[in-house]
Design a protein around this nucleic acid. Sequence first.
DNA 1: GCATAAACGAGACGGTACGTCCAGTCTTGTC
DNA 2: GACAAGACTGGACGTACCGTCTCGTTTATGC
Lengths: 210, 210, 210, 210
Amino acid sequence: MVSAMRNASPGRTGRPRSASADAAILAATRDALVELGWSKLTMSDVSARAGVAKTTLYRRWAGKSELVVDAVAELFDSLELPDRGSLEADIEYVVLRFAELLRRPEARTALMAVVSESTRDEALRDRIRSAIVDRQKRLVVLGRERAQARGELPYEEDEFLAGSTTDLIFDVIAGTVVHRALVSSEPVDELWVAAFTALLMHGLRGATAA
Amino acid sequence: MVSAMRNASPGRTGRPRSASADAAILAATRDALVELGWSKLTMSDVSARAGVAKTTLYRRWAGKSELVVDAVAELFDSLELPDRGSLEADIEYVVLRFAELLRRPEARTALMAVVSESTRDEALRDRIRSAIVDRQKRLVVLGRERAQARGELPYEEDEFLAGSTTDLIFDVIAGTVVHRALVSSEPVDELWVAAFTALLMHGLRGATAA
Amino acid sequence: MVSAMRNASPGRTGRPRSASADAAILAATRDALVELGWSKLTMSDVSARAGVAKTTLYRRWAGKSELVVDAVAELFDSLELPDRGSLEADIEYVVLRFAELLRRPEARTALMAVVSESTRDEALRDRIRSAIVDRQKRLVVLGRERAQARGELPYEEDEFLAGSTTDLIFDVIAGTVVHRALVSSEPVDELWVAAFTALLMHGLRGATAA
Amino acid sequence: MVSAMRNASPGRTGRPRSASADAAILAATRDALVELGWSKLTMSDVSARAGVAKTTLYRRWAGKSELVVDAVAELFDSLELPDRGSLEADIEYVVLRFAELLRRPEARTALMAVVSESTRDEALRDRIRSAIVDRQKRLVVLGRERAQARGELPYEEDEFLAGSTTDLIFDVIAGTVVHRALVSSEPVDELWVAAFTALLMHGLRGATAA
DNA sequence: GCATAAACGAGACGGTACGTCCAGTCTTGTC
DNA sequence: GACAAGACTGGACGTACCGTCTCGTTTATGC
């Protein structure tokens, strides 16, 4: 649970927070995002859908942005990286799954909106990083380890360099796919994925060889 | 001027639209974006800053999103690609200039916000594509032509393939830099740019060799 | 019109305030008072009944209290004092009419409520005085002049003394009737009015004789 | 104690109600009335001031109005009527004491507010009558008995008539003073009290003579 | 040069959502 | 079973913008 620590022992007295409310609110938020999009989503509407009072929302989240980050973070957690046999296949698989996720209206509209809001809000930026960015880097790390085990990529001794490379690859993959899908508004189909993966594979092999 | 045709001869009689108002409004919009960010920018505020009535805004733009697209599109037009002697140097240069642009608060906040809005608005998506995306692809085309002239890259006979590659490179560069800067919230410094450019160069050489 | 000066020439530009809205709002306020009473009357409800936006209410009145004072002030203006032939008959008549007015739920609930609010609000106190108290003193002044013309009461030379007496009689009549009707919650019937008038007549004759 | 019977033997098991809580709550209510006035007084605030949970308040009073009636009733009980030697002096004394009481903010704001609320609430009307009105009539009865003993007023054989007269005098005195102080917002000073008492004395003498 | 007609500023309009506050109830664990 | 604590539903608050509208005023052109 993304926001687990928010519920942890706020003291000991008083009525405890409803455990079921959190899940209902996040689900309602995703539903509302699908139907209304970010800009027409309202806290009132979410509270009504979740069968919860508006005060309950504000008691748990500071505002629309924070709520939506948590709501969509769960979506991104659904991404998996099964072993497809080769690094190339692994990359193609995860890019397609990610593109699929970005076709979901709640993900499309929410992701860019919260990033936009975060440009003026340090706390929100941290929340995005911890709830979304850092959590999904696991896919890059996992893919890399598998490729190293297969002998497709060399082991990197320098820990800092390894981290930098992980970050770079993550930004290249996630950024390129998001830009293709949301900014350029072009389809992320198998043809394009193959071309992108080829470019990336050459880049990786060339860079690690050097 | 992005919206030039909107002013063209609407008939013959009546008071013509103020030519100076457009520029004043777009400048006021950028100022307001810097100070307030996207979500707190209001049409009333822009009209007040521009010394113009609210009706005048709505007579020329359908809403906040359309106005902001035009306002920031001008920013992106300022990107240039002087010849730095090699493809590698050209890429490093443009990436650094682009990152610089993304450090400007009006660009940061506006770009992601209008992309988010565009997920539910076909017309806005088209406007972004024509006012921003397509206009900046010129940089990729120019860089490629120079590299081909230098012999760094082969000529591509197939026109469709050439277009696809241009699009791909554009998404990789723009997407990766935006993701690094705005989503991951990490600095786009010379070290990172060198690593990214190296990856991209290897990718390009490998892909075009195949 | 109680609030006439509020509408007077606020400048010259801009859309003028709707003239009909004022009347509709005051009527809606009285309706809501009848149905809901003071404490359950809400600005939202009034705006809905009047077919007017909430902002329009707040543009014209500072709050519930101010609105209600204006709304009920019109009720009190309906009190008249026809010549019943003698001071005694005039007093009995106006007391019965006043009691009748206080049986109307909008008057009962509103009068005491705004007086209560006014205990912490100098501006509201002034508004009550100018919109209700001072306007109804006319009845006392008129009754007194008629009684003097009939020879039932002597002319008072001293202007200050005349004013003081007017105020005193007004407070005695209005206060006693209000207290009987709203605090003691006893009926103001003909029997009681006769007894009260007798007391007051003796008081007046005795006091003016001295 | 106004609400004494509410605490009597609620059964036999369980923790008994705190005896000190009642007094603390009523005192806290009066404090809050002084600081905040009726409309801004909240049950939460009272409970916090009294160091008591909100549930404890609701266990003992049905709502704000009931609580406030009990809280201010105690104030009115403080009125006394020492023998000043003559009916006139007794009246002047009690009127001045009453006016003094009405200068206290908790009395001013609460009295009118609960009366206003009572216009739509039969039970509250009864509570006001029994807790405030009927208890203070004792002053009129006592003053009358003393005046009769002194020979200033005749004995009234008819018991019903005596009651009516008590009620009338009570409404005249209380109503006039309240109206002067709270509605007309004019000072109840010695000059005014003398004029009012003179009027009342003439009224009483004339009426009882007839 | 005078009428026509559109664009202009000002600001009121009906709506809608905001985030806060309070009412009154309910659910804990403690006394 | 009363108590302190505090989360709960529900709903009004007063504010802020939205995008539209209605004014009176200004500024081009075309007769």
